[in-house]
Design a protein around this nucleic acid. Structure first.
Length: 500
RNA sequence: GGGCCGUUAGCUCAAUGGUAGAGCAAGUGACUCUUAAUCACUAGGUUCGGGGUUCGAGCCCCUGACGGCUCACCA
C-alpha cells in the first residue's frame, strides 16, 4: 500500500504539479539550458561597483535548486544553488507579469528553477540576478529540511545522502576534496612512469591480505568466488610479466566489523615498482603526502580533529622496537623486546588477550599496536616488522627475524603499508604453508596458499617495492572528517525497512 | 559481538506518571531591497514496533527494529 501521499506536505506539492499540468505546463520540462553558473557571475562582477555592474547589462541564464525564498509582496528574493554555489535571484511582479508572478509565489523550496536576467547589487550589498523570465524545471514533492539547522540526524544524512548533499554545503566540498585526492595520486604516479591497471575483483583465492572475504558464486563456471580483499597478488603477477611500474585505485571488500575507520568496501591505492625497495616506497609516500597537502591546502600543516598535522618532509621514522621503547616511556626498552619473557610479561600487563599463545614477532606487533599506535599523530613511518606478521614481505638481510616493511601512520591510524616484495618462490611457498597451518589452527584470516602465485614467482619476479595506501582514511585526514562514513557517499548500513 | 546513549510534526528540539508543545517549513492574508525577513491567522502527531505495570504511560518495566558513540576485530 502506498501511503506516501498521506503526508499533506507532499500532497500539496503534488497538487501544485498537477495544477501545472492542467494549465498545460510541464512540471518536469527539459528544455532550459543555463549558460552560466553562480560562480561565473560572481567572477564576472568581482570588484565592480553597483553602477559598473548595471552598466554592463550582461544577460545571464542560470539554473538551480531553490534553497530559500522570501516573498515580500510584489518582490521576491530567493536563493538558487547550482554546482558552483549560490546566487540570489530577485523576482518582481511588474517585470515578469502579474499572472506568472502569482504562480511563481507558490513555488516551493527544493524546486529546480531556471532564470534569465541581468546582474545587480541589492541595497544590502548582495550580488543578485534580476529575473526577466523564470522557468520551473523540476517540481520537488518532498519538503527539504529546515534552512537554519539543516539536516543533522546522522542516520538520515547517510541513508539519504542526496538530501545531505543538497543542503549541507560542507558535504559537497568533502567529496570534491576526495576527487582531488584521487586525481592528484593519479597525476603523481603517471608522472613517475607508472601505468594504471585493473585486476580482478572476483577471485577464487582471496589473497594479498589477512581478512575475511565476502563469498559469492559464479553460476556458469559453477565455482565459488570471493570479492577481493586486496589486488596485491595480481599486481605482482604483472611485475612477473614485465610491467615494471603499475598502480591500481579500486575497491577492496572485507567481511568484518564496521567502525569509524572501517567500511566493508573501501578504496585502496596499491603500487608496485621493480628494482625498488621499501625505502623507495617511503620516499614516494613522503613526496605524495607532502605535495598533496601543499596542493590541497597551500601549506604543509593541516588541522585534523583539533590536532595540527605537519606534512613538512622529512617524516618521522622509528623501528617498531624503538616505538615500543619510546611510547612505553622506557618501560620496555629495545633490548627488553628481544627478551621473550619480558615481552610476554609486558603484554600481559597491557591485557593483550592470548598473549601466551603468540610467537615473539606477533607479540611484538601486538604490544606495538597497543602502546605506540595511538600516539603516532604526526606522519610517521614504522619500520622493521616481524616476519611472522608479514607473509608477503622480503626478509631483512641482516636480521632474518624482520622484514623490510613499514607502515605509515597519521593521527594514530594506519594509513599505508609497504615493503620490499618477497620474490623468492621457495620462501614464499614456505610462508604460505606456515599461514595455512595457522588456518588449520582456526585462524580464519590466515593467508591461503595461492599455487598459481607461487608458480608466477618461479618464473621470476624482478626485485620490487610495493605499497598500499588507504584512500578513504587519507581523505578523512584532508577533510577533517571524524568518520569514514563522512568520506563515502553511501556508507553501508542495515536496510531501513525490515519487511518479511 | 559487548557496553552506554538515542528514536516525539517534513526538519531542529521541548514536555515531575496527569489534555503532547515551540521555532523553522506548510496553508491563507498583509508587505516593492530581503539575508534564519517581518506581522496576523490556520492546519499539522499510531511519541520507532510489540507486550506489560498503572485509574492514567512520550516518560516506568520487558522485548524487538534502526542508529550514534565506544570496546573488541581489522586497513
Amino acid at each position: 500500500m502506498d501511503t506516501r501521499y498521506d503526508n499533506p506536505l507532499i500532497k500539496q506539492r503534488l497538487e501544485k504539479a498537477e495544477g501545472m499540468r492542467e494549465e498545460g505546463l510541464n512540471p518536469y520540462p527539459n528544455d532550459f539550458r543555463p549558460a552560466h553558473t553562480a560562480a561565473k557571475i560572481r567572477k564576472d562582477m568581482e570588484g565592480l561597483t553597483s553602477e559598473e555592474i548595471e552598466a554592463k547589462g550582461k544577460r545571464y541564464s542560470v539554473a538551480g535548486r531553490i534553497i530559500s525564498m522570501r516573498v515580500m509582496g510584489k518582490n521576491t528574493f530567493l536563493k538558487l544553488r547550482d554546482r558552483s554555489g549560490d546566487i540570489q535571484l530577485f523576482v518582481q511582479r511588474d517585470v515578469i507579469g502579474r499572472e506568472l508572478y502569482g504562480k511563481f509565489k507558490k513555488y516551493d523550496m527544493g524546486d529546480f528553477l531556471g532564470a534569465k536576467g541581468t546582474a545587480f547589487i541589492t541595497k544590502t550589498g548582495e550580488l543578485s540576478v534580476k529575473a526577466k523570465s523564470i522557468y520551473m524545471l523540476s517540481k520537488s514533492l518532498r519538503p527539504l529540511p529546515e534552512k537554519f539547522h539543516g539536516l543533522t540526524d546522522k542516520e538520515t544524512r547517510y541513508r539519504q545522502r542526496y538530501v545531505d548533499l543538497a543542503i549541507n554545503p560542507d558535504v559537497q566540498s568533502t567529496f570534491i576534496t576526495r576527487t582531488k585526492v584521487v586525481a592528484f595520486i593519479r597525476k603523481y604516479f603517471q608522472s613517475k612512469d607508472f601505468l594504471e591497471v585493473e585486476t580482478p575483483m572476483l577471485q577464487t583465492i582471496p589473497g594479498g591480505a589477512t581478512a575475511k572475504p565476502f563469498e559469492t558464486f559464479h553460476n556458469a563456471l559453477s565455482v565459488k568466488m570471493y570479492l577481493r580483499i586486496a589486488p596485491e597478488l595480481y599486481l605482482k603477477r604483472l611485475l612477473v610479466g614485465g610491467m615494471e611500474r603499475v598502480f591500481e585505485i579500486n575497491r577492496n571488500f572485507r567481511n568484518e566489523g564496521l567502525s569509524n575507520q572501517h567500511n566493508p568496501e573501501f578504496t585502496m591505492l596499491e603500487f608496485y615498482q621493480a628494482y625498488a625497495t621499501y625505502e623507495d616506497m617511503m620516499a614516494h609516500t613522503e613526496a605524495l603526502f607532502s605535495k598533496m597537502a601543499k596542493e590541497l591546502t597551500g601549506g604543509y600543516r593541516i588541522s585534523y580533529q583539533g590536532e595540527e598535522i605537519d606534512f613538512t618532509p622529512k617524516f618521522n621514522r622509528l623501528t617498531m622496537q624503538e616505538a615500543v621503547e619510546r611510547y612505553s616511556r622506557g618501560e620496555l626498552s629495545v633490548e627488553d623486546t628481544e627478551d621473550e619473557a619480558k615481552l610476554l610479561a609486558f603484554a600481559n600487563k597491557l591485557g593483550i588477550a592470548d598473549a601466551a599463545k603468540m610467537s615473539w614477532g606477533k607479540l611484538l606487533a601486538e604490544v606495538f599496536e597497543t602502546v605506540a599506535e595511538p600516539h603516532l599523530i604526526q606522519p610517521t613511518f614504522i619500520t622493521q616488522y616481524p616476519v611472522d606478521v608479514s607473509p608477503l614481505s622480503r626478509r631483512n638481510e641482516k636480521d632474518p627475524r624482520f622484514t623490510d616493511r613499514f607502515e605509515f601512520y597519521i593521527a594514530g591510524r594506519e594509513i599505508a603499508n609497504g615493503f620490499s616484495e618477497l620474490n623468492d618462490p621457495v620462501d614464499q611457498l614456505e610462508r604460505f604453508k606456515a599461514q595455512s597451518a595457522e588456518c588449520d589452527k582456526g585462524d580464519e584470516e590466515a593467508h591461503w596458499i595461492d599455487e598459481d602465485y607461487v608458480r608466477a614467482l618461479e618464473y621470476g619476479m624482478p626485485p620490487a617495492g610495493g605499497e598500499g595506501i588507504g584512500i578513504d582514511r587519507t581523505v578523512m585526514i584532508f577533510t577533517d572528517a571524524p568518520s569514514i562514513r563522512d568520506v563515502i557517499f553511501f556508507p553501508h548500513m542495515r536496510p531501513e525497512r525490515t519487511e518479511g
